[in-house]
Simulated scan of single mutants.
Amino acid sequence: MRANPLPLLTGLVLLTACSGGGGSAPSAAAPSPARSSIPAPSASSTPPSTPSTPPSSSPPNAGKVIVLDPGHNGGNSTHPGEINRKVPAGRGETKPCNTTGTSTNAGYPEHAFTFAIAQEVGNALAAKGIRVVYTRSDDSGTGPCVDKRAEIGNSAEADAVVSIHADGATAASAHGFHVAYSSPALNAAQGEPSLELARTMRNTLRDNGFATSTYVGSAGLSARSDLAGLNLSTRPSVLVECGNMRNATEAARMSSDIGRTRYAEAITQAIEDYLTSS
C-alpha cells in the first residue's frame, strides 16, 4: 500500500505499496432440558413450580458494530483529479484523497483483493449477528477519501475498524503480513484498545499459518504516525497489510479463492476474539 498519488495529467485508501515501508466453528446447539425425575405429587401435596423457559441463546457478539475498510477502489485510476486532491491526514498533515493501490506482477489488483476479503469477512460476521458497515459498497467507484473512511468508522461508533490492504514492496523476496496502528496515540481509542486489536489480529494471523513481515515493523506489528485512516479514528482501529503482492508465493495465495478464504477466516476469527475479550 505504498503511496502512489497520480499525476494530474494522466489517469492512474490509503497507499500503493500499502505499508509505505518498503472461521470459527459454529456454536453448539443448546441441550434440551432434562426430564424431571420427581414423581407426580399426591392430591394433598403442593404442586412443584413450573420451571422457567430458558432464554434463547444468541451469538456472544450480536449487536456489536464492525467497520470494514477495503483499501483503494477500482475506479481510482480514471479519476486522477479527485484522487490527488489533498485532504486532512491528522497530526496537522494533508495527504492525497486516495491512491490506486498496487497489484501482483500478473496484474491482479490490490483493490479487488481487499474488496473480496472484506465481503467474505463481512458475510461471516453478519451471520453471527454482528452489524457490518463498509467504507465502500463496490469495486468500480472512486474513493472514498481517507478522511471520509475514518469518519465512517467514527459515525458508526464502531467497536472496531479494520482496514484491509496488501503491500507492494519492491523486493520480491520481502514477504509476510504486518498490522499497523496509530502511534503515538492521539486519543484513548488509539491507545490500549487499538493495541489490543493489533495484537489479536497479529496473533490470530500467525496462529493460522501466516508469516510475519520480514521487512516492515517488528514481529508483525508496525507503529505508524502517517496513516490518515488511523490518525483520524476515534474508534479502535488497525490496518492489516496481508502480504507483499510482488512476492511470488504471496501473490499466488492472494490471487486464489482458497488463499483469500484463508485470509478472510483468520481476520474474521481475530475480530470475533477481540470483540469477545473487549
Rank of each mutant, 00 (worst) to 15 (best):
N4F: 05
N4A: 11
P5V: 01
L6T: 03
L9G: 07
L9R: 10
L12D: 10
V13D: 04
C18K: 06
S19R: 03
G20P: 00
G21S: 13
G21D: 13
G21V: 13
G21E: 07
S24V: 12
A25K: 07
A25D: 04
S27K: 05
A28P: 13
S32C: 04
P33W: 03
A34K: 15
R35K: 13
R35V: 11
R35W: 08
S37Q: 14
I38F: 01
I38Q: 15
P41C: 05
S44F: 14
S45K: 07
P48C: 02
S49A: 15
T50L: 13
P54E: 04
P54I: 09
S58T: 14
P60L: 12
P60K: 07
K64C: 01
L68W: 06
L68T: 07
D69P: 02
P70Q: 11
P70C: 04
H72A: 05
H79W: 01
P80Q: 08
I83G: 00
R85S: 10
R91V: 07
E93C: 04
T99Y: 09
T100F: 00
G101D: 13
T102D: 15
N105Q: 14
N105D: 14
Y108T: 06
H111L: 00
A112P: 00
I117E: 11
Q119K: 15
Q119S: 12
A127F: 03
K128D: 12
V132K: 07
Y134I: 09
S137R: 14
T142I: 14
G143N: 14
G143D: 12
C145I: 05
A150M: 07
G153S: 10
V161S: 11
V161Y: 15
V161M: 15
V162N: 08
D167I: 08
A171H: 08
A172Q: 11
H175W: 02
G176H: 11
A180E: 13
S182P: 00
S183H: 13
P184C: 03
A185Q: 06
L186Q: 12
L186I: 05
N187P: 04
N187I: 03
A188H: 06
A188P: 02
A189Q: 14
Q190Y: 04
E196Y: 08
R199A: 09
N203G: 02
D207L: 08
N208R: 14
F210S: 05
A211E: 14
T212C: 02
S213H: 00
T214V: 08
Y215H: 15
A219D: 15
A219L: 06
L221E: 12
A223W: 02
D226W: 05
D226M: 01
L227E: 13
G229Q: 08
R235F: 01
V238D: 03
C242N: 12
N244C: 10
A252S: 13
D257I: 02
R260T: 05
T261M: 09
E265V: 11
I267G: 02
I267N: 03
I267L: 15
Q269W: 00
Q269R: 09
D273F: 02
Y274P: 06
Y274L: 09
Y274R: 05
T276G: 15
T276F: 08
S277D: 13
S278E: 09
